[in-house]
Amino acid sequence: MRKMIVGERKPLAEIAEMLEPFRKVCVLGCGTCVTVCLAGGEKEASETAAALTLLAQKEGKDLEISTHTLLRQCEYEYIDDYAEKLAEADVILSLACGVGVQTMATRLQDKIILPGLNTQFMGYPLQQGVWAENCLGCGDCVLDLTLGICPITRCSKSMLNGPCGGSQDGKCEVSKDVDCAWHMIYERLVKMGMESRMETIQPPKDWSTSHHGGPRTIVREDVRLENRE
């Protein structure tokens, strides 16, 4: 899996603070996206548990820590398989993304689930140790217009009609570390002989298909189970 939800573990002090009222803690890794981005898999769950144990010892706190890793915290069937093993803990520190944390909290109504990560974005590994955001999930993909470079995500101003006046030497005004998406789009269109596309005035975007339209649900009647409750 190359595409993924990318996260970063919260600072240990913040985690320790949210765990303050609890004694039996389960640090729960997630085996999919956050494993690949080295933020919340089995290895990170063990490391986090070890660091918390050390901190508790230092502060003289009685903390009982267990660790487990679920293949996917964002699917009920995987959670259900594991529910028994989680029964002991007062609290579960989930190292899944926000989706996993919430799915867990929905499925395990009697448990307290706390987030151990800051979920960052949908992206891909640019190189070893570097991840880049490249999709905002706006619900109305425009990658056909730009030949595979998303201006909504990768232009700091989500512009749809070309680069702003802050683009210089291929870089965004926001940071020399950020490539100007429209500079890249322009060069790609030129390469493909399709730069005349940039002459079309793209109308205001329909943001109602994105989160701005409210929380989204997809219903696929064709794959729903008939006797679903």
């Binding site: 700091s156 101003k157 989500s158 512009m159 749809l160 009609n161 070309g162 702003c164 006046g165 802050g166 005004e173 926001v174 005035i201 793209q202 109308p203 205001p204 975007k205 943001w207």
Partner: peptide
């Protein structure tokens, strides 16, 4: 105008709106 990114100002934590872009504003 499009406007400088909020990062440059005294409210760098703010939400950049960018509902329209400068081209769309003109056309509007």
């Amino acid at each position: 105008l499009q406007g400088d990114h909020a990062k440059f100002g005294n409210q760098p934590q703010s939400k950049n709106v960018n509902d329209l872009d400068s081209m769309q504003l003109l056309k509007t």
